[in-house]
Computed example of a mutant assay.
Amino acid sequence: MSPSDHEGLLKGKNVLLTGASRGIGRAIAEAYAKNGARLFIVARTTEKLEEVKESCEKLGSPEVTILEADMLQEDDLAKISEAVKGEVDVLVNNAGMATSGSILEGSPDEAAKLVTMNLIAPMQLTILLAPQLHGHIINISSVAGLHAIKSQSIYCASKWGLTGFSLTCFEDLKEKNVGVTAIFPAYTESSMTDSASFPSDKMIRPEDIAEAALLPFRMSKFACPSEIVVRNAIRP
C-alpha cells in the first residue's frame, strides 16, 4: 500500500486530467482516485480511457467521466472546457509528446506539432479554465525544461516554455488562491521513453510522479511547491 492510499486528500474535488490513458497520466488518475477525487479523464482513445475509468472506480473515485479529445485540435479544447462547465477544482496538464533528433535533421511541421502539444495546448486549456478554477494547476514539464539536452532542441524549447508559463501562472493566480505547480521528471518509464538510451529498469516509475502530484494537497494553504524536480536516483 502506498503512502497516499485512503488519505482522502482530494475528497469532494473535481479533477481534469489530460493524457490520462497511460504512463504518468494513468498513475496520477489512480493516485487521485485513491484519494477520493471525482475525475474528468482526457485522451484520444476511449478504449484505453475505459480501462482507466474501471481502475479508478475500483480504487475509490466516486465518479469518472471520459472525455475523448485530441489536444492538437482547438475545437476539442473548447469542448473539454464546455464539458466540465466550471466544475474543475484541479487541472493537471499532462498530455505531451517527445521526439529526438538534431536541429539539423528536424522537420518544421513536426516541430510545430510538438510545440503545440507540449506548450500551446496546455496554455489554451489553462486560459479557458483559469477564470473558473478555485483550486490548483499542475503542469507536467520535464528536466528538459530546466537545462539543454543534446538532440532535443524542440522538446527542450517546448518544455522551457511550459516552465515559464507555469511559474508566471503561479504569480498571476495567487490573488485567486489558486496554486500552480510544475513537476520536472527525468527519465520515467513510459511509452514516451521506449527509445531512450537510459535503461528502463533504472527509470523513475510513473507512480513516483503521481506521488509528486499529491504533494501540493498535503501542504497547508500557506504553502505551495511551485517546482518539483524528480531525478533518476540510479546511474544507467
Rank of each mutant, 00 (worst) to 15 (best):
I154E: 02
I234K: 14
S151R: 13
E74Q: 07
S55L: 04
H134W: 05
L10T: 08
E54S: 13
Q124C: 06
V92E: 02
G145A: 07
A29L: 01
R205H: 10
A33K: 01
A223M: 12
V115H: 01
G36I: 07
A37H: 03
P225D: 07
H6A: 14
P131D: 07
W160K: 05
G164T: 12
T193G: 05
I183D: 01
K85N: 15
K221G: 15
S158H: 08
M1G: 14
T188W: 08
S81W: 02
L214F: 11
L167E: 10
C56A: 10
A78F: 09
E105Y: 11
K113S: 06
M97C: 11
I138F: 03
F184L: 06
G12A: 03
R38Y: 01
L128N: 10
T46S: 05
L16K: 02
K48G: 00
T46E: 11
D70P: 03
A196Q: 07
R231Y: 07
S2T: 12
E68L: 00
S100G: 14
G36S: 09
I154R: 03
S151K: 12
R205Q: 15
F170R: 12
D5E: 15
S2A: 13
Q132T: 13
I127S: 11
L10S: 10
I24G: 00
M97G: 15
A69Q: 07
R218F: 09
I149C: 06
E57H: 00
I80L: 14
S158I: 12
F165E: 05
T188H: 11
L17W: 02
G19M: 03
I66G: 07
L146V: 05
F170C: 12
A95M: 05
F40A: 14
S195M: 11
R44L: 04
V178D: 01
I137Y: 01
I137S: 04
D89Q: 05
L67Y: 01
I234S: 05
Q152G: 05
I183V: 13
S197G: 13
S197K: 12
A31Q: 11
G60W: 08
G19P: 15
N232D: 11
Q132G: 06
G101W: 03
E63Y: 06
A98V: 14
V178T: 02
M203D: 09
I234R: 13
E51L: 10
V92N: 03
I41A: 00
E63F: 06
E87Y: 01
L67W: 00
D76S: 11
V84Q: 08
N177K: 14
I154K: 02
K159R: 13
K13Q: 12
A186L: 03
I228E: 04
L128A: 15
V92G: 02
G8M: 06
K11W: 00
P236D: 07
V180R: 07
R38D: 02
K150M: 09
M71L: 14
E171F: 06
L162W: 02
V143W: 03
Y187G: 08
G101M: 02
F184N: 07
G25W: 00
K150N: 14
L215N: 06
V90H: 04
G96L: 03
R38L: 04
S197C: 03
Q132C: 04
V180P: 08
C56G: 04
A144H: 14
Q152Y: 13
